[in-house]
């Protein structure tokens, strides 16, 4: 693996196709995610962005195509193994543990870590106690980083939507994922969008986390992304750096409608 690192993409998607009955949501989509980059997948409503995310996180199984993770090809990602492989995600409509505190939500995000068994905790085994303390410290540090420390003990269900979104991001980052699949901006105000963007950039720059952003609004992701993939009606219509994508006639047509192409 050592020799090929750098050239092998973290994730390679090849010929991915997903249909629900007669409706094709994703059709023959291929792209690669390089280590350490921020890749945004954008497209108008109904372009298939969320379906694609659900394929990448194992919620859906594709009818055709392969998903290659760190050089190993899979027919599909098994939902129970995705987190262990190093993928963490957020959800368009939030999937938080609403009855639990902010801190507990983030701690749940670290459920992959820690070796001690429950009975070791039960007898206050020193190693287990140390481990619990370390987990708690990491979670607290994350809360500080995303500006949630003040709400740590509040049940998540009582927070405003923008803050809940931030809790979800913190929980995903808590897993220290190789790849963060984030659908961050849906239904958010400008302040919240900026705060979230800052968190994502920090995770990428400081911790080297590879990020795939799913976003409807082209403007938001232009400054954040190294590369942009554009979907329309389930197909990939563009793939490249933000500036190139911004000028791409097919992208303009998809976003602005046929009239724009006529002028072009």
């Amino acid at each position: 693996m050592g020799a090929t690192r750098g050239t092998t993409p973290l994730l390679q998607v090849q010929g991915l196709t997903l249909a629900f009955g007669g409706v094709t949501a994703i059709e023959d989509v291929s792209f690669a995610v390089q280590r350490g980059e921020v890749l945004s997948i954008i497209g108008p409503n109904g372009a298939g962005k969320s379906s694609l995310l659900n394929l990448l996180s194992g919620v859906y199984a594709p009818q055709a195509g392969t998903l290659t993770w760190q050089g190993r090809a899979h027919r599909r990602f098994a939902p129970r193994r995705v987190a262990r492989m190093g993928l963490a995600r957020t959800f368009q409509n939030l999937a938080l543990f609403k009855g639990m505190s902010v801190l507990d939500n983030v701690l749940a995000g670290r459920s992959l870590y820690g070796r001690s068994r429950w009975w070791a905790h039960a007898v206050r085994w020193p190693a287990a106690v140390r481990e619990e303390r370390a987990q708690r410290q990491r979670a607290e540090a994350l809360l500080d980083a995303v500006g949630l420390a003040a709400w740590r003990a509040v049940p998540v269900g009582q927070l405003a939507y923008g803050l809940q979104k931030r809790v979800e991001l913190a929980r995903a980052l808590a897993a220290e994922p190789e790849l963060l699949l984030d659908e961050p901006m849906a239904g958010m105000g400008v302040d919240d969008k900026l705060a979230l963007s800052a968190c994502i950039v920090e995770a990428n720059r400081v911790h080297g986390t590879t990020v795939v952003l799913i976003e409807h609004d082209m403007g938001v992701v232009m400054d954040l992304s190294d590369r942009i993939v554009v979907l329309d009606h389930g197909r990939k219509i563009a793939d490249g750096p933000p500036d190139a994508v911004r000028r791409d006639p097919a992208v303009l047509a998809a976003y602005l409608g046929r009239a724009a192409t006529a002028v072009h």
């Binding site: 996180s57 963490a88 938080l96 995000g109 459920s111 992959l112």
Partner: peptide, 17 residues
């Protein structure tokens, strides 16, 4: 904690491993 996570939202629990 895992138990409470599963009770609260099984899909999210699955997503965090």
């Amino acid at each position: 904690l895992r138990l409470r996570a599963v009770a609260d939202d099984p899909l999210a629990a699955l997503a965090v491993g």
